[in-house]
């Protein structure tokens, strides 16, 4: 016997455990790989410390410099829209907060659901725009790999199924909710093995960048 409810319970049960385990192990392997490689000792006399400029870059690199904004406005604006939209839907939607609370005990106030729905719809449109851009812009088309399209598909599937589940446009609900959870689990599973790792390593990368330049007296 396998129906939509059994599917939902499978995604909420064993599959969730598997996904979390692969995600946690994979991500820690990834981060350990980075830190164990480390950096060679730097003998050059520094102009300034590393920590502060490193942390500053972690924050400031979220905002494009005016020149980049002028030359790649689509990348900057659409990238922002969908990242912020994704984060709002991920972190400020009540069912997600309940999930986080059940795992960590931490919780915070949620945004009203219709607002989340609107944000999600905008995110979906922005994601479609990024795909079109990736397939048409010469640079992005040239540097894109199969992985880029796979990751796009998974991210889009997560947002789309989430939105369909919220708007209850697919029946039965356990089926679409299960598909949403499964899509999120697939995202968790592939996260440590694809560019999705940047969610965690971009902080490290930005810090290394900011520290290296900051040491030389430039806030990068």
């Amino acid at each position: 016997m396998s129906g939509s409810m059994e599917f939902l319970l499978w995604t909420k049960g064993p599959m969730f455990d598997i996904a979390i385990a692969i995600f946690a192990i994979g991500l820690l392997v990834r981060i350990a790989e980075i830190f164990m490689l480390g950096r060679a000792k730097n003998f050059a006399e520094p102009r300034a410390g590393e920590w502060k400029p490193g942390l500053t870059t972690v924050v400031t690199r979220s905002f494009a410099d005016p020149g980049t904004f002028k030359r790649a406005p689509f990348n900057v604006v659409v990238g922002w829209i969908w990242h912020v939209g994704f984060l709002i839907a991920l972190l400020l939607f009540l069912p997600h907060i309940e999930l986080i609370k059940s795992l960590t005990g931490l919780s915070w106030p949620a945004l009203p659901n219709p607002l989340i729905s609107l944000v999600t719809a905008v995110t979906l449109i922005a994601l479609i725009a990024t795909l079109v851009h990736r397939m048409t812009h010469p640079v992005k088309r040239r540097i894109s790999t199969l992985e880029d399209y796979l990751v796009w598909t998974v991210v889009f599937a997560v947002v789309l199924t989430g939105w369909l589940a919220y708007t209850r446009m697919v029946n039965p609900y356990p089926l679409i909710l299960g598909m949403h959870i499964l899509a999120a689990e697939i995202m968790l599973i592939i996260l440590p093995f694809t560019k999705l790792t940047h969610i965690f390593t971009a902080v490290i990368a930005r810090w290394y960048n900011g520290a290296a330049y900051g040491r030389k007296g430039v806030q990068s």
Binding site: L9, F23, A24, L99, L103
Partner: peptide
């Protein structure tokens, strides 16, 4: 939206294994 069996301990366990 809460998973059936996972708890903070499961995640911690996975993280420790990781």
């Amino acid at each position: 939206s809460v998973p059936i069996s996972a708890s903070g301990m499961n995640v911690l366990g996975a993280a420790a294994a990781g």
